[in-house]
């Protein structure tokens, strides 16, 4: 599954559409950026409610392809701006981190 497939596969809204459309390798869920930095692997999709421009900085370092903001948390404009520069997609969903994790995991394992 590629980044552009996420919207339809998970029923989530695309907020930042300028991204590199590559193959998704894994997922990671977490709201602590230090934790994401320590554990998330390159080529992952990050599920979080930490809607902040620093999330993009960490995502860029780790090599995260896309961020799904859960619980319909508001997304600040400077976060979208930073993501555009880094070519990281942002999606938003009203579902929780728990539900989104389950859905993404199921999708990724069935598309392999």
């Amino acid at each position: 599954m590629r980044v552009r497939d996420l919207s339809e596969a998970l029923g989530i809204e695309l907020i930042q559409p300028e991204f590199e459309d590559t193959e998704i390798l894994d997922g990671y869920t977490g709201d602590l950026l230090s934790d994401v930095m320590a554990h998330a692997s390159s080529g992952s999709v990050l599920i979080t409610i930490q809607a902040h421009k620093n999330t993009i900085a960490v995502a860029g370092l780790v090599g995260i392809l896309a961020i799904i903001v859960a619980n319909e948390r508001p997304i600040p404009e400077d976060m979208v701006e930073a993501a555009r520069k880094e070519k990281i997609a942002i999606f938003r969903s009203k579902e929780s981190q728990f539900v989104l994790s389950g859905k993404l995991y199921a999708q990724l394992s069935s598309s392999r």
Partner: peptide
């Protein structure tokens, strides 16, 4: 396990 993986298993 990670939060991501364990959420999937708990969901199942």
């Amino acid at each position: 396990l990670s939060m991501y993986k364990v959420c999937y298993l708990l969901g199942c």
